[in-house]
Write a protein that binds this DNA or RNA. Structure first.
Lengths: 236, 236
DNA sequence: CAGCATCCCGATTGATACTG
DNA sequence: CAGTATCAATCGGGATGCTG
């Protein structure tokens, strides 16, 4: 296994999860166990070879665990270990940084896990009056339950028993509305999204996610010669 | 340029800084600008080809900026842009995670930047009485000034004017004492470290860094069959 | 069909040498 | 000092094959 041979914690973290696709595999598992085939489906572009390799390595290093489900399911799933689960803050902080990139394509594919993590990251209660709601999110095959209470957001996998509302649509569409500034009504009219239930709860829910503005556009193409004088020498 | 074609912020972040060595280059620049040759020296194992590639890419994506120093220095340095500088929390969180790995080699090479970042990460004031001190760290060629005041730590590049104490030694040795539990006196006797100045300030300073304990040893080699019953099906 | 293993090929990396 | 050039080794991606 390749290594940076560096005692720095970050360098060692990259020994473990710095290989191509590794952190995306972890991202897909943050919300719960998945089967090999579902991982492959949720990571468009990964090859079966690479996925198998990454899962092996992540298992060997104690980030991921394989488990066979009890009968009658019988299938094998991959899940994060407790330590692997602690990568979630890392993933969210990296996501918060990358989301502000001027070169990010907001129209690219978005997995359900990607959307839910961005919800967790971008949630910001507005006025802190006691708004509470349970919203079921139907993202393709996957269902999630988002619960807002006391200015806290929780999103877990699985449908809700008695949701105040249900929102159904592709993750990318929902992201466009939640974090990309797209108009909800327009998305519904375009048949990209469908909603049911308490529409005022939906509106309040949607309004509680902050749009992360990209940093100032692409960097100036040419370096302006004398605008920023050298601040200091690289060495003493 | 290779991309995951994923709208998730984290995936895009990896498009930008996920290539091999990229984040280590950023780490080396977090404390201030550096020249090409110094980067190469501080990143043992990187090839000149890859370093040149990474710097090109990081410059194109607006993470790093090249600058020619004013005469008489005249040399070219690389420095983080404001946005690139915002990777520091990401690097620290990744470092905090990786530092707890059971497979991390604490005896490997450690760069001055790696040490200083781990200081910033692991600082935890103990009893909050008004301890204040200025300590100069001499790490090979590089000097840093660590200032503790009001339960806050600041470490900046450059020597101190009137430090309360001076500590000199290799970054790895200092890390062993600060975060690895090695005895200061023993390190001095072994001639790995030298100190000058207020020795009680040094002792108090050193005691304010928390040892991050590794997570429970290497994962169990064989999966115990029935110990953790399956929690749920991967799909509804 | 789930869960890989194999083979092939182009892209990336790393070691070394070389240049302005 | 600050890179570029070259080349072998490795890695990633795509297609396909295999096995229960």
């Amino acid at each position: 296994m390749r290594s940076y041979h560096d005692a720095c914690g970050m360098a060692h973290a990259l020994d473990l999860v710095g290989e191509r696709w590794a952190l995306l595999v972890v991202r897909e598992l943050v919300l719960g166990p998945k089967r090999y085939t579902d991982l492959r489906a949720d990571l468009p572009g990964i090859s079966t070879t690479v996925l198998a390799h990454r899962l092996d390595e992540l298992e060997q290093t104690g980030v991921v665990r394989r488990r066979r489900l009890a009968p009658p399911a019988g299938s094998t799933v991959y899940e994060l270990t407790d330590w692997g689960q602690e990568l979630e803050p890392v993933i969210r902080q990296l996501g918060r940084w990358g989301a502000r990139s001027p070169t990010r394509r907001r129209d690219a594919h978005l997995s359900a896990a990607g959307l839910v993590l961005s919800l967790r990251t971008n949630y910001q209660p507005d006025g802190s009056d006691g708004f509470a709601a349970t919203i079921e999110l139907r993202l393709g095959e996957d269902r999630f339950t988002a619960t807002v209470r006391d200015g806290q957001l929780a999103v877990v996998r699985g449908g809700a028993d008695e949701p105040d509302a249900v929102i159904e649509g592709a993750p990318g569409v929902l992201a466009g509305v939640l974090c990309g500034g797209r108009c909800l009504r327009e998305a519904i009219l375009a048949n990209d999204l469908s909603v049911r239930g308490d529409s005022s709860a939906i509106r309040r829910f949607l309004s509680q996610f902050s749009l992360s503005e990209p940093v100032s556009g692409p960097p100036p193409p040419i370096d302006s010669p004398e605008k920023t004088p050298p601040r200091r020498l690289p060495r003493e």
